[in-house]
């Protein structure tokens, strides 16, 4: 089974039908283990129980970047190899990525409130994630602005790749901007070294959320393929002379 074999949407559909239940089950089990472990994790000596927010904040933040990576690969697939599933994959990933980025922002803000005293601090990391979220929304708006899916795919692919190149630049400039006027004393989140008691639940949760993304992504891709079939059939129906 190579990537070329998957170029046939029908074969892709039968494959997803086979592996989706397994993926969903694995996700549910890992998520349950991760939630149990993070509930059992000890309190941080500095942050107290608030550190539990980390176990869902960090996986979401990780996914917010990972999904953009997946979309960039798909964009390459669209532009370079013209793989027929690449634009399906890119389109299906965008709303899911936006949702995870939104969750990273919200959990970060709920974590920041006890730590900083405000829901929002123009901290370099939070601000970069906010910009990433805005870029996701812009990308979704682009997908929704063009009616022909394959034309929209090429435009979105270019924007995704430009974004992938630009995100590190944005991150760097936001860091610079933030150190330029560093507000009083912002308590650094987490630390450079994490205790094992925190690290293991965090890793389990990160894997569980990644699996969750893969499951949702495959299911959304299946929807997108079916949507295109509906579109094709509707056009055929419109062009057929009425009997």
């Amino acid at each position: 089974m190579t990537l070329i074999d998957l170029a046939n949407p029908t074969r892709f559909l039968s494959l997803t039908a086979k592996i989706l239940p397994w993926l969903a089950a694995a996700t549910a089990i890992l998520l349950a283990i991760g939630l149990y472990q993070s509930a059992m994790a000890p309190d941080d000596y500095q942050q107290g129980a608030t550190v539990k927010i980390m176990f869902i904040h960090v996986p979401n933040a990780w996914l917010s970047m990972f999904v953009w990576g997946v979309m960039s690969l798909s964009a390459l697939g669209t532009l370079v190899w013209r793989h027929p599933l690449a634009d399906v994959s890119a389109k299906a990933a965008a709303p899911i990525g936006a949702a995870f980025t939104f969750l990273a922002l919200v959990t970060g803000s709920l974590w920041g409130r006890p730590m900083w005293g405000t829901y929002w601090e123009w901290d370099a990391r939070l601000t970069s994630v906010l910009i990433l979220f805005l870029m996701y929304l812009g990308l979704i708006a682009l997908w929704r602005a063009v009616e022909d899916p394959s034309r929209a795919a090429r435009a979105a692919a270019v924007l995704t790749l430009v974004g992938a190149i630009n995100i590190p630049i944005i991150k760097f400039s936001v860091d610079w901007w933030n150190t330029l006027h560093q507000p009083a004393s912002v308590l650094r989140m987490g630390g450079s070294t994490l205790d094992k008691a925190f690290l293991i639940p965090l890793l389990v949760m990160a894997v569980a959320f990644s699996l969750l993304f893969i499951t949702l992504h495959l299911a959304a891709m299946r929807n997108e393929i079916l949507r295109r079939r509906v579109r094709a059939l509707q056009m055929q129906q419109a062009s057929q002379p009425r009997a």
Binding site: L130, I131, A145, H181
Partner: peptide, 26 residues
């Protein structure tokens, strides 16, 4: 293709740009 929500998105971006111009002083 209707683009009803583009206005909100623009609103969001304009407001987010302001702190970059005036600084993150709450």
């Amino acid at each position: 293709g209707g683009g009803a929500l583009i206005g909100v998105l623009f609103f969001l971006i304009v407001v987010v740009l302001m702190p970059f111009a005036v600084g993150p002083d709450l």
